[in-house]
């Protein structure tokens, strides 16, 4: 009897999780249905699994170009953030002094500023750099990467700072006496030790940059530069009445997220937990 009760609890929990994720099921099954079938019953399995709407959605969304843009922007932004903020945080911790404190405090304080407070002046400033200095900040993927690095610097420096403080300094001192340069000490000795926090920093930044809509929507104007959230936005504005097509498009946008989650599930849950608690 008790065993039976235990089993039913197990099943209930799984059932709850399935109900919780049912919207994703609904999107998935309806992406295969034609209009009539969709209106007859939105919850049933499709009669055929034809990929017709997927091909159409891929073409209309420019899906391959969007995913290439998203990957390019996300990967480069995250790599630069990891390199620059770990170096900065290490110097700030190991040098100490008034200047380092002021820099660190400035990073922390700016975490309070919401994006909406910066968006208009940022766009003004970026287009004036583009026009006056001829540096293409506005309407380029590289400009977006530059801005991503700036916006994610604070949290990343903060996370690295906390972690580096807990590493004993003796190792570095020994290496310095051996005559290694600061650069060598950092990349050969320190950076490998930062692995756990680097994983956290990478995951938090990947999630936030991959899903970001507002900043890219302000900076990227050309159709060919659109990232996934941007192309979803424009696609949906055009085809929301054609639900089967829209849902094939939505399913496409979720697939990369599911792959990422499947590959790095443990790190993601751990990283989210750590990022939140600090």
């Amino acid at each position: 009897m008790r065993k039976l009760f235990g089993y039913s609890k197990e099943i209930l929990l799984v059932l709850l999780a399935i109900v919780f994720l049912s919207p994703i099921y609904i999107i998935f099954v309806n992406s295969f249905k034609d209009r009539q079938e969709l209106y007859d019953n939105a919850l049933s399995l499709p009669a055929t699994f034809s990929l017709q709407y997927y091909l159409e959605a891929m073409e209309k969304m420019n899906f391959l170009s969007a995913i290439a843009n998203s990957l390019y922007v996300t990967i480069l932004s995250v790599v630069i953030i990891v390199v620059l903020s770990s170096m900065t945080a290490w110097m700030l911790v190991r040098t100490g002094g008034k200047l380092s404190t002021i820099i660190f405090m400035t990073f922390i304080a700016t975490m309070l500023i919401p994006f909406q407070t910066l968006m208009m002046p940022l766009m003004q400033f970026m287009s004036s750099i583009t026009n006056n200095l001829n540096i293409p900040m506005y309407n380029t993927r590289e400009g977006l990467i530059f801005m991503n690095v700036g916006f994610h610097a604070s949290l990343s420096v903060f996370l690295y700072h906390g972690f580096i403080k807990s590493i004993p300094i003796t190792l570095e001192e020994a290496a310095t006496i051996d005559g290694a340069s600061k650069f060598g000490v950092f990349w050969r000795i320190i950076f490998p030790m930062l692995k756990p926090i680097t994983a956290t920093v990478m995951i938090l930044n990947v999630i936030s940059i991959w899903n970001d809509f507002l900043l890219p929507s302000l900076t990227l104007i050309d159709v060919g530069l659109r990232t996934i959230p941007l192309s979803t936005f424009y696609f949906f504005g055009e085809f929301s009445i054609q639900w089967n097509l829209a849902m094939a498009g939505l399913t496409l946008t979720i697939i990369p997220v599911i792959i990422f989650y499947a590959l790095a599930q443990k790190h993601i849950i751990k990283g989210i937990g750590e990022g939140a608690v600090k």
């Binding site: 700016t110 400033f125 700036g150 610097a153 604070s154």
Partner: peptide
């Protein structure tokens, strides 16, 4: 060398627009 690149980007993107 270690701090200037990030500080430059951060100043351009966050501090000056603020």
């Amino acid at each position: 060398l270690f701090t200037a690149p990030l500080l430059l980007i951060f100043t351009t993107v966050v501090l000056i627009p603020f």
